[in-house]
């Protein structure tokens, strides 16, 4: 295997293999490759492309995002927190009767409950997205690929990570070459 090279840039490298990355020439090519890779049984697969490719997440078998559940948890927390807060303030801590309504009257608690639900849902959506994507981060192993600059122009990259149970340094690289990948490189963390 002459084209498969371990990318060891200098002695500072920790030597831990992160994964294998291959380059493809078109959106159709990487889509077909993604289907083949997942059909082969690889699960920790990702694409790195100059623009979003419609439906690639299906070919990569990424499944639906977990973010929705996180947002739902945030929303429910907001509802419960607002209800407990208003009940405790109005009914327990500082009981106050306003225009003949009972101290804790549910209709008047709805606006605050709604606001807190929206606030915590929005926080979970934004910060949850950051957390799931492990942002902010200053470096990613994919940047050590020798031709990765092309990802902002006209080339498409497919990566298989080393933590994939099926991953094998040589065989995975050979497989990516066999399905049409160019410049297949083993990247280190």
């Amino acid at each position: 295997m002459t084209t498969v090279e371990a990318n060891t840039t200098g002695s500072a490298s920790s030597g831990q293999v992160w994964g294998v990355v291959a380059e493809f020439g078109s959106a159709a090519a990487i889509y077909a490759a993604a289907e083949k890779v997942t059909a082969e049984g690889y699960t920790r697969v990702d694409s790195h492309t100059p623009f979003p490719i419609h439906g690639i997440e299906k070919a990569l078998r990424h499944g639906p995002s977990h973010l929705g559940w996180l947002v739902a948890c945030g929303g429910i927390t907001g509802i419960l927190a607002a209800q407990v807060m208003q009940w405790w303030m109005n009914e327990v801590d500082y009981e106050m009767w306003v225009s003949g309504k009972t101290p804790y009257a549910w209709p008047s608690t709805i606006p605050i409950t709604f606001e807190l639900m929206v606030l915590l849902s929005a926080f979970c959506a934004v910060f949850g997205m950051f957390a799931i994507n492990r942002l902010p981060r200053l470096h990613h192993p994919i940047f050590t690929h020798s031709r990765i600059v092309q990802v902002t122009d006209d080339k498409f990259f497919l990566s298989i990570e080393a933590r994939d149970p099926k991953f094998d340094r040589t065989r995975t690289a050979q497989f990516l070459e066999s399905i049409g990948g160019k410049h297949v490189e083993v990247l280190e963390d």
């Binding site: 225009s99 003949g100 309504k101 209709p107 008047s108 709805i110 606006p111």
Partner: peptide, 12 residues
Amino acid sequence: AFTEWLIVWSAN
């Protein structure tokens, strides 16, 4: 619809 009802309920 809810605000309309809430305002009428509050003002009484």
